[in-house]
């Protein structure tokens, strides 16, 4: 299974950067700490906000951040390969480029994700105590979390492939991450939005790489999980299809140009 091998190799490559990763993780603790301080101040004079207790809020944030903080660098790789022309070699190899990039990207993100998850767990446990039903929710939440990482990888591939037409695709990705940031519920659950906005934001693709996985973690029930899962399937297939189409159009273009 060659895609599995690509996946494991990229995991091993990431482990080589352990010292850098350690420092980065210390920085994550700082971010968690800032969030904790902020929310414990907010919860001083109230029990819940939109149905979230402080325990749920902190666990929610560590989980949502885990997806955000483990973003991989696949888009940059694709952009560079297209710019320097080495993408042509990728086309000639006996594997499918898009799937290759997905395997790589997933390998990278999952290695980055694991320490953040562990740190998040330790942090939340120490600062606000255990989350009820953690272990029941975990398997389901993990599925959605991996799905969230996958969505991110797919976004990156789609945007990266746009380098066939655009000089610099960084800004597109920036816009995307900021959309996840605000509309995806990265900094607090979407439920805190004004009602009409919350209604829309919950079903936009951005919510499926932050809000739904994290909410499944802290307020697990079948409906929440299934909504998250269904949205994930729909958006992931959509993005996969989209990247395949973009790639095929680009491939024809390369051939026409005699690449």
């Amino acid at each position: 299974m060659k895609y599995l091998r690509i996946f494991t190799i990229s995991i091993r490559e990431q482990i080589a950067y352990l010292p850098v990763m350690l420092l980065r993780n210390i920085f994550f603790i700082i971010i968690f700490y800032i969030f904790y301080s902020l929310w414990s101040a907010i919860y001083q004079d109230r029990e819940t906000i939109e149905g979230f207790t402080i325990i749920q809020m902190i666990w929610y944030l560590t989980f949502a951040e885990a997806i955000e903080l483990s973003r991989c660098g696949v888009m940059n790789q694709i952009q560079e390969e297209i710019k320097d022309g080495s993408v042509v070699y990728g086309l000639a190899r006996p594997y499918y480029y898009v799937i290759f990039k997905i395997s790589r990207g997933m390998g990278e993100s999952m290695v980055r994700c694991l320490p953040v998850l562990i740190l998040g767990y330790a942090f939340a446990y120490i600062f606000v105590g255990p989350l009820d039903g953690y272990f029941t929710a975990l398997p389901f939440a993990l599925i959605l979390l991996i799905g969230g990482l996958l969505l991110n990888v797919l976004w990156q591939i789609n945007i990266g492939l746009l380098s066939f037409w655009f000089e610099e695709v960084g800004p597109f990705y920036w816009i995307l991450t900021k959309m996840v940031f605000i509309m995806g519920g990265l900094f607090f659950p979407i439920d805190l939005f004004p009602g009409w906005l919350a209604g829309i934001a919950k079903y936009l693709p951005f919510a499926f790489s932050a809000y739904w996985p994290a909410r499944t973690m802290v307020q697990f029930n079948q409906d929440i999980f299934l909504t998250g899962f269904l949205g994930l399937i729909i958006y992931a297939s959509g993005l996969l299809l989209c990247s395949t189409v973009i790639f095929e159009i680009a491939r024809k273009r390369v051939h026409v140009q005699g690449g």
Partner: peptide, 29 residues
């Protein structure tokens, strides 16, 4: 211009975050 644009976008996202949050909770400390 790309960098400046990215920076403005980034900062504006945070401003929206704070707007919504303060709208919800009043003052914080």
């Amino acid at each position: 211009f790309t960098q400046v644009f990215a920076m403005i976008l980034n900062n504006s996202a945070f401003i929206i975050f704070w707007m919504i949050l303060f709208d919800r909770v009043g003052t914080i400390e």
